[in-house]
């Protein structure tokens, strides 16, 4: 259905979906860039964040507190996973790291299913963001606009952390040259733990703020994982700006293709990824020679 108003609506919608994808992918890319670990449990962390927020919401009744508590929980959960499992894997081949995070992802999903069952868990949007906003040319759920805003702010915060702080300097140094971090005389492991925590938090945070939109099931992260892969492959693995660009591109592809034929939305996404691989194998904003 290609009409002018629908095109504009889908454009906005693609941006909203894309920003959220960008936030999740940023977490994946930071972890990979710094630790050199591809986190296949990232989709599960998106899901876990949502459930953490759900529990906090049940306990407090406040959406803001749910977001805060859920994010902190994910930061800690990420750090603990790094400390207990991932740390053993830095000296092992990348395939082992992929395998173990894959396993962790399954365990997280099944633990959540064990505790919460398969019934959907719902977190309502905060009262002030419920309802619909008219943008003149279209109407759009207020909360989705809020998600767009929050995700954009979160990306900005991540940007500031990465580009304006000492820890960010270290992380970026790690992305440029992982050997260098050790030379800086820094406790590398503490940084790695923190970075894994931040990466997990980015996914978890996205999971919480997205919970009122999708409602939660233990499998809610499954499709996210594959989409974030496409995002980072398009944007460039390990590139923070690449994750943002890739996220928005992916969001727009999914939205705009649906105007023509929704059945091809996902196929289109993969087709674009393949195209990027041929024209620019390192991704749009990736550095040649890495990975």
């Amino acid at each position: 259905m290609i009409t002018w108003p629908n095109f504009v609506s889908q454009l906005v919608n693609g941006l909203a979906a894309g920003t959220l994808l960008a936030l999740i992918s940023a977490g994946l890319t930071i972890i990979y860039g710094t630790l050199g670990v591809l986190n296949l449990a990232h989709g599960a962390m998106f899901m876990l964040g949502g459930y953490a927020g759900f529990v906090a919401f049940q306990a407090t009744g406040s959406f803001a507190l749910a977001v805060l508590a859920g994010s902190l929980f994910m930061l800690v959960a990420g750090a603990v996973i790094e400390l207990v499992v991932i740390r053993r894997f830095y000296s092992r081949p990348p395939e082992d790291q992929i395998l173990v995070t894959f396993g962790i992802g399954i365990v997280l999903v099944e633990v959540v299913r064990f505790i919460f069952g398969s019934l959907t868990a719902t977190v309502p949007p905060p009262a002030w963001a419920a309802g619909i906003t008219s943008l003149g040319f279209m109407i759009y759920p207020t909360y989705r606009l809020v998600v767009l805003g929050i995700a954009a702010v979160a990306l900005a915060v991540l940007y500031v952390v990465l580009y304006r702080t000492r820890i960010g300097l270290i992380v970026r140094a790690g992305i440029e040259d992982s050997g260098m971090v050790g030379l800086l005389g820094i406790n590398v492991y503490r940084v790695f733990m923190l970075v894994f925590g931040i990466g997990a938090m980015a996914a978890g945070f996205a999971g919480i703020i997205n919970a009122p939109v999708v409602s939660l099931t233990p499998n809610v992260g499954d499709s996210i994982l594959v989409q974030t892969f496409v995002v980072v492959v398009i944007g460039g693995v390990g590139s923070f700006p690449g994750a943002i660009l890739g996220g928005i591109i992916a969001g727009e592809i999914l939205s705009l293709t649906s105007m023509v034929n929704p059945a091809y939305s996902d196929v289109m996404l993969f087709a674009v990824m393949t195209l990027v691989l041929f024209l620019r194998p390192q991704g749009l904003l990736g550095l040649a020679g890495r990975a």
């Binding site: 990348p94 992929i98 594959v226 492959v233 996902d266 196929v267 993969f270 990824m273 194998p281």
Partner: peptide
């Protein structure tokens, strides 16, 4: 195989997903 390591793993995931969507609908 244009890429190696984790890139390769990610690309295989994505391509396999594409096959699933193709099989299922078109």
């Amino acid at each position: 195989l244009r890429r190696t390591g984790i890139y390769f793993a990610m690309i295989t995931v994505a391509i396999a997903e594409m096959f699933f969507f193709l099989e299922n609908s078109p």
